[in-house]
Nucleic acid binder design. Structure first.
Lengths: 206, 206
DNA sequence: GCTTGAATTGAACGAATGTTCAGATACTCT
DNA sequence: AGAGTATCTGAACATTCGTTCAATTCAAGC
């Protein structure tokens, strides 16, 4: 009694990653055993090692490919040149991307401490690159006299925390659609950094 | 060879909680063993059970007393009646309270999934009560015509996520003091929900 | 100085952990 | 039909886990 009928590498591989993603997100990396993942896939624990060298790599691969997909998706997004429009585009992108990948987002922000130091460093690099994308939008808006804030780095982190927080409560099929949620976050974001009429008047007086 | 010279229950008890707080925050509840906690305290693992019935209770006690202290501290805070001043007070309180308790905050938002269902429910109740404090400020400001937002619940969660995010990057002795950080967050928060001059003009016209 | 009781040790328990691997199985190609 | 190979099982490995408890040690009260 061994191999089950109709099972293949191309099927089991993704299944393993999907099961790990789901379980890591709901219980945490350290709390999930390889046997639990195997059971979710419908396989014995030993078979997992055909698809990952070890548990740590399984976690790292999930986090790394999530960040790759995030950066790539943003890279492919068309960028308006007007600062407020660009910031709006970023918020819409961020919300809509994140609500569809709640498990991966949760893992990527939560399990950093369970990575080996080298793996941690690499992921921090990717995360920083994404954050810098937002920060450069803010700074461009500030240079253009459209935005107003004290500290671009802090503002970046504050906005990303607010926007990513959507994954803490959003449930598909809930009270609001992703589009409505994105619109509300867009308003809040723009208001939090936009120049008030008073700012503009003062700038004109200078 | 047993009891060490000069050690007492009143000393070891808090030490156990402090060690658990530190280790749970840095490695996660599931990844920390009772033996690690004991080693941090300078005691054998068995001795921990004089101070907690089990590992789960240790986690729950830390989270529960954190929420109790948070609610109690906010309750004791003087509340201005003017909505914008009250919101400003909340932000200042939240930031300054949270930056001094990064470990407890981290645990309280991260280890909810490692609680038993009953313990989870109780903590969610406390967390909800705190969130409701902010939401009522927002709604009072809206009624007074001072604030403007689409959805009070969503706005509440967005603001709390933004404000609590400070614990992800703040390090004591860093570039900015807690006061400076709180001021920046206060500006962002007020701007994100404050009526613009246009809003006020429109309201006056009605 | 002796007794009492609280504080702690150190060993032990069964269960669960990540990982390995020889062997069994089912599919593919000839 | 038969051989070969990718896939998976099932058992085993050494560790580690949370927890218990008899035995031991220290400090205080008489």
């Amino acid at each position: 009694m061994a191999r089950k009928t109709g099972s293949h590498s191309e099927i089991t591989g993704p299944k393993v990653r999907a099961a790990a993603l789901k379980l890591f997100a709901s219980q945490g990396y350290a709390a999930v055993s390889m046997r639990q993942i195997a059971a979710e896939v419908g396989v014995q624990a030993g078979a997992l090692y055909l698809y990952t060298p070890d548990k740590q790599s399984l976690l790292y691969d999930l986090m790394h490919s999530h960040m790759d997909e995030l950066l790539e998706a943003w890279r492919r997004t068309e960028k308006p040149s007007y600062p407020a429009a660009l910031l709006e585009r970023f918020v819409q992108f961020h919300i809509k991307f994140h609500v569809t990948r709640r498990d991966a987002v949760f893992i990527s922000y939560m399990e950093l401490r369970n990575l080996t130091p080298e793996n941690f460093t690499e992921l921090e690099r990717l995360r920083r690159r994404y954050e810098d994308g937002l920060e450069s939008i803010l700074m461009a808006g500030q240079s253009a006299g459209e935005f107003r804030f004290e500290d671009s780095r802090l503002t970046t982190l504050a906005l990303i925390a607010m926007l990513t927080g959507v994954t803490n409560w959003y449930k598909p099929g809930g009270r609001l659609t992703p589009g409505q949620v994105a619109d509300i976050y867009t308003d809040m974001t723009l208001n939090s950094v936009a120049c008030t009429r008073a700012d503009l008047a003062r700038a004109a007086a200078d």
